[in-house]
């Protein structure tokens, strides 16, 4: 019984982390059809920005509660700067090129940003546990869990449903959906696709950075965290169906529970359980759980 509850809670916490990272990725793909490997760098930059901001904030001895705002703010600023800069400075020249070509551009950017981060933050791990420790713990069925981790579930739900609402219930969001469905038609309708792309990519970058920032208090922020996370995020997005927010949520939950179940019941499989799940889903449903099957063109 305890194990079952633990699998559920651990799985949900892990899933919310995966979801926060995968959200920006699936948005960028959905709108722009770009598989963005540099999303891993956004995650890492967000984590670094948050960790160093929280560190400085705590050093300054200000009220700890404000630390959360500082953390999120630092990540958002970093995300906007990097995302906007990248889209305007580089990616917009690549639109219309082959998808794999654009993918490789993001890979090259990923390599470059790796060293940029090393230059800015050095190789030593950054540690920002204050926001995690501050919230204390709750006991779930005899097991203590940090409230910070539990609240990640809520944060992920709020951000996810917020984005879903903005997309499907607001005018601007509906414009975005139009672009997703038919880029050419939306140009005819007078939608400034270039602007939509800039906003989407920047938003995706901010979401990635925010994912990193929210993770920063749990992990130690060190070189290479972006590379670790990006393939996992891809797997989640593929499981759920590329470009679908609901899909990303379901994909995260599936991957999260699979991971937790593996650790509790069959630790040997932890390394590849998510990839096994991905293969299984793709074999049964090639377009992912919530992906739309592409009609074959004649």
């Amino acid at each position: 019984m305890t194990t079952t509850v633990a699998i559920l809670v651990d799985g949900a916490v892990y899933a919310s982390w995966l979801f926060l990272v995968a959200l920006g990725l699936t948005l960028t793909f959905g709108v722009m059809k770009i598989l963005n490997i540099a999303h891993g760098s956004f995650y890492a930059i967000g984590a670094y920005a948050a960790a160093s901001a929280v560190g400085a904030y705590v050093q300054a001895g200000l009220s700890p509660a404000g630390g959360y705002l500082v953390m999120a703010g630092a990540a958002a600023i970093a995300g906007v700067v990097v995302g906007y800069g990248l889209e305007r400075g580089l990616l917009r020249f690549m639109y219309g090129r082959d998808a794999v070509l654009v993918l490789l551009v993001t890979y090259a950017v990923f390599l470059i940003l790796d060293d940029v981060m090393l230059l800015i933050w050095g190789a030593n791990p950054y540690i920002a546990y204050q926001p995690d420790m501050l919230l204390g713990t709750s006991t779930v069925f005899t097991l203590p869990y940090p409230n910070y981790d539990l609240s990640l579930i809520a944060v992920a739900a709020v951000i996810g449903s917020g984005l879903w609402w903005a997309l499907s219930r607001t005018r601007r969001g509906k414009m975005l959906l139009t672009v997703i469905h038919d880029r050419e038609m939306s140009t005819f309708l007078g939608i400034d696709v270039a602007k939509v792309f800039t906003v989407t990519f920047t938003l995706g970058a901010v979401l990635g950075a925010l994912g990193g920032a929210l993770t920063a208090p749990i992990i130690s922020v060190q070189p290479g965290i972006g590379a670790e996370v990006i393939v996992l995020a891809f797997a989640v997005v593929v499981i759920g169906g590329m470009g679908s927010i609901v899909g990303a949520a379901v994909g995260s939950l599936a991957a999260g529970f699979a991971h937790a179940a593996a650790v509790h019941l069959f630790p040997q499989a932890e390394l590849f359980v998510i990839y096994a799940l991905m293969s299984l889903v793709l074999i049964v449903r090639p377009q992912g759980l919530f992906g739309q099957a592409q009609p074959r063109k004649i």
Binding site: T2, T3, A6, I7, V9, D10, G11, V13, Y14, W17, L143, P144, Y145, D149, T215, I218, I219, S220, G224, I225, E228, H259, A260, V263, H264, P267, Q268, E270, L271
Partner: peptide, 18 residues
């Protein structure tokens, strides 16, 4: 057996607590 550089050990810690 967490993955190298996994960074997150919540599920592992639950198992150890149990």
């Amino acid at each position: 057996w967490p993955k190298l550089f996994a960074g997150q050990y919540n599920a592992e810690i639950s198992t150890l607590l149990i």
